[in-house]
Nucleic acid binder design. Structure first.
Length: 522
DNA sequence: AGACTAAGCGCC
DNA sequence: AAAGGGCGCTTAGTCT
């Protein structure tokens, strides 16, 4: 059963609209009684108020996310995907632009009515049914919508973040918190060392100044990337490298960041479901997906609780093995360490197997890649051909799709121009690498979404998912639930694999550990 | 002064 | 040794 939530109105599809005095309460009651699939224009706006009231739901259909998936599949990538825009298109009305502004802004338009939303839903279900693989796409829509629920819940619950530990770490590395606009003492000392090494004032944050200063010292640099700096012999290099590393911590994840993003001992980033074209999530502020490893020790479970941290091992090559139906690769992917299982095909070298697989999935060409790819082509022809086909499609300007049907953006007008010009080959190859990777990364993202959706349903109260990063998930739960949660993770991984690929020899190991601090997970 | 891009580097 | 996919975020520096 689908039940539309439009503003303060609740309306079962085909039933009568109600305007309950207590919307959250009514949703909670209906959820307990019927477990319907809730339909909303955008979970980012509809769900947080329910969470505030302690109401959680099992399933939903997010009209905006679904519209985005459908538009892309239809080759209409970039058209506005809000429920309102979808409704306007249905009726030949002017299509409103997507509002980039945050929910709750002053000029937010009136919410779409329940009848209009039901029309959009019916239209979307019809378009899905007409697809060549409707079953897969339905799974994609369900997983994407479940992702929207998980994302809102994770933002609401937040990841444990100990400000005292964070402050101690920063103070240890940088010196005490400086007054606004100043560098911390240790950072300033390193900047001074750089200046001393050059014999004149140089701002280590300025690429221009650095290149100029090195040039004057007789060192020609193309860039100031740290790997390039490491190659040169000059007294400024050591303090500069140290400065770069610490400056990043200070400005990205320092005290100012914590003031803005950590509240009540929780870090609450805003996740953007499907924010990456491949289907990966992005974040909007907070840099949640780029937390430096050195900061993981700041993530500590509450007293009496633990963090269950789980990551999918070698997810992308396993996904490729399952998609391509490559028997040899699938057999290797039946092992816990896929690369070790492949090693004998690559002269006994695990590293070579890894380079071959990564080059195949990313389009790498350097070093030994071409030699190793030739081995891969011979040993694992179907897997090799699968990514080659995706690359060829991209080079030819075609669309590619993930396993469940997420579709790549079409080539831009700029690309079409470029590809017929003198730099055409380069442009074509760049897009080929993108589409080559898209099919693998996109399907890996689908597997991860399915995992989240299933795991969410298996977790016992009061365990909570508190972090998700592409192929890694963190659950915060009482110590006594650790074993149950760990078991739930591997069950969810198996179920995600079954949902996407049915019966396959490929295994998707998801090993979970219960730790007190994130830093102890690996 | 604000909007923009490029460089650089963190994560997967 | 330093290339190949996807991002977000900050500072410098430039443009308007």
């Amino acid at each position: 059963m689908y039940v539309v939530v439009a503003g303060e109105t609740v309306q079962p599809v085909g039933g009568a609209a109600r305007r309950p005095a207590d919307l959250a309460g009514a949703v909670g009651e209906l959820e307990a009684a019927e477990r319907p699939r809730w339909v909303w224009a955008d979970a980012r706006e509809a769900y947080p108020p329910l969470l505030e009231r302690g109401v959680r739901v099992a399933r939903c259909h997010d009209l905006a996310l679904t519209e985005g998936l459908l538009l892309a599949h239809e080759g209409r990538y970039g058209e506005p995907r809000t429920a309102r825009a979808a409704h306007a298109r249905l009726h030949g009305l002017p299509v409103p632009e997507e509002q980039p502004s945050a929910p709750g802004t002053l000029f937010a338009p009136e919410p779409l009515g329940a009848e209009a939303m039901a029309e959009v839903l019916a239209d979307q279900l019809g378009r899905i049914a007409a697809l060549p693989e409707p079953g897969r796409f339905r799974l994609l829509v369900a997983a994407e919508s479940a992702g929207a629920l998980v994302a809102a819940e994770m933002s609401y619950d937040g990841m444990p973040w100990r400000r005292d530990v964070h402050d101690a770490l920063l103070t240890d590395l940088l010196g005490p918190r400086p007054v606004h606009g100043m560098r911390p003492a240790k950072l300033q000392a390193l900047a001074d060392e750089v200046t001393a090494a050059f014999g004149h004032q140089v701002n280590p944050d300025s690429v221009q100044q650095l290149v100029k200063a090195f040039k004057a010292a007789g060192v020609a640099l193309k860039t100031t990337r740290s790997w390039e700096l490491k190659q040169i012999d000059h007294p400024a290099v050591a303090p500069l490298l140290a400065y770069k590393e610490l400056a990043r911590l200070f400005s990205f994840h320092g005290w100012v960041w914590a003031d803005q993003w950590v509240r009540g001992g929780r870090f609450r980033p805003e996740y953007v479901v499907g924010g990456v074209v491949s289907g990966r999530w992005a974040t909007n502020g907070g840099g949640a997906l780029q937390i430096p490893k050195v900061m993981r020790r700041v993530v500590v479970a509450d007293d009496g609780w633990v963090l269950v941290v789980a990551d999918a091992a070698q997810l992308e090559p396993r996904v490729l093995a399952a998609m391509a139906g490559d028997g040899g690769l699938a057999r290797a992917a039946g092992q816990i360490d896929l690369y070790s299982a492949l090693a004998q095909s690559f002269g006994g070298e695990r590293d070579n197997a890894k380079i071959a697989m990564l080059s195949a999935m990313y389009g790498g060409t350097s070093g030994d890649a071409s030699k190793l790819l030739a081995v891969m082509r011979q040993r694992f022809p179907k897997a090799y051909q699968f990514v080659e086909d995706a690359a060829k499609a991209g080079e030819d300007g075609h669309l590619v799709r993930s396993w469940l049907g997420r579709t790549s953006p079409p080539p831009s007008a700029r690309w079409k121009e470029l590809v017929s010009g003198p730099e055409g080959t380069r442009a074509a190859r760049d897009r080929g690498r993108f589409t080559r990777n898209f099919v693998v990364q996109g399907t890996a993202a689908e597997w991860a979404l399915a995992l989240l959706a299933v795991l969410r349903g298996l977790l016992p109260e009061p365990a909570r998912m508190v972090f998700f990063q592409h192929d890694e998930v963190m659950v915060h739960c009482p110590i006594g639930q650790a074993e149950e949660v760990i078991a739930a993770v591997s069950e969810a991984a198996a179920e995600a694999s079954r949902l996407l690929f049915g019966s396959t020899p490929v295994r998707f190991p998801m090993e979970a550990v219960a730790v007190d601090s994130y830093a102890d997970a690996k």
